[in-house]
């Protein structure tokens, strides 16, 4: 029985990587388990039966069962999000550069008025960060129109990326503080990598959540019907 479980676990990983939804995976696995149990009762060995290439078998089975596949296409997603974020970063910097002197000229604050430092930081860094997120989400939404459920992915990104940014900012600041706010290239590179990795994680998570199956198996798959002997 453990061998069956092991084979099914490997098949499940292959189905997951192949973009088969959870409901379809469960249906395929239930069917396969029944058949393997019958084979084992007749003296078969599941590993031998399925051969060395269980992943290949699982993909073939998914194809033959006609299940719907939704591919994550994470490489394209991350590349597009990165391009959008970079363009957004440039735009955000440009906005800030143009906006800051304009605001200084328009809003003539008296010398006695002190802007809270938190507010100043939030505006100074928040505006470019917001534009970075908007850039990444817009790029994904527009450039990856061919991917299924991309609208939902973009929506999830718009929620998760700011949350990831809020999460990683104090961590990065703490790291910077621990290095005495060093401007050494390797320290700066580490800080940038920390932020990018977190945003990439948020993007991947957004995609995973958006393509997660809604527990409805494919229409075409595995309807068990009554036997009508020929």
């Amino acid at each position: 029985m453990n061998t069956i479980d092991g084979a099914l676990a490997e098949a499940d990983r292959a189905w997951r990587a192949y973009g088969v939804g959870s409901a379809d995976r469960a249906a395929l696995a239930d069917d396969l388990r029944l058949d393997l149990q019958a084979a084992v009762a007749d003296g078969g060995d599941p590993t031998q039966l399925l051969g060395g290439d269980i992943a290949g078998f699982a993909r073939r089975l998914a194809d033959e069962a006609g299940v719907r596949r939704v591919c994550g296409d994470y490489r394209r997603l991350l590349g597009t999000a990165l391009i959008g974020a970079a363009l957004g970063g440039l735009l955000g910097y440009a906005i800030l550069t143009a906006l800051y002197p304009m605001l200084v000229r328009i809003v003539d604050l008296p010398r006695s008025f002190e802007v809270p430092i938190q507010l100043a930081l939030a505006v100074y860094y928040g505006v470019p960060a917001g534009v970075v997120v908007v850039g990444a989400v817009t790029a994904v939404r527009l450039r990856l129109r061919d991917l299924p459920r991309i609208r939902r992915t973009a929506w999830m990104m718009s929620l998760l990326m700011p949350a990831a940014g809020i999460l990683i900012t104090p961590i990065t600041m703490a790291f910077a503080w621990s290095t005495g706010y060093s401007t050494a290239p390797e320290v700066i590179a580490t800080e940038v990598a920390m932020v990018l990795a977190t945003l990439a994680g948020a993007t991947v998570l957004a995609r995973r959540l958006s393509i997660r199956d809604r527990q409805e198996p494919s229409d075409t798959t595995l309807n068990t019907t009554e036997i009508k002997p020929a």
Binding site: D31, L32, L34, D35, A39, G44, L49, L50, G51, D53, F57, R60, L61, D63, E64, A65, G66, T220, T221, L222, T224, T225, E226, I227, K228
Partner: peptide, 22 residues
């Protein structure tokens, strides 16, 4: 191999050519 026959059976079941029951 069983790995050849089982997917084919699954396809034939999807197409309604065979049915199964426990």
């Amino acid at each position: 191999s069983y790995g050849t026959i089982y997917p084919l059976l699954t396809r034939m079941r999807r197409l309604g050519l065979v049915a199964d029951e426990q």
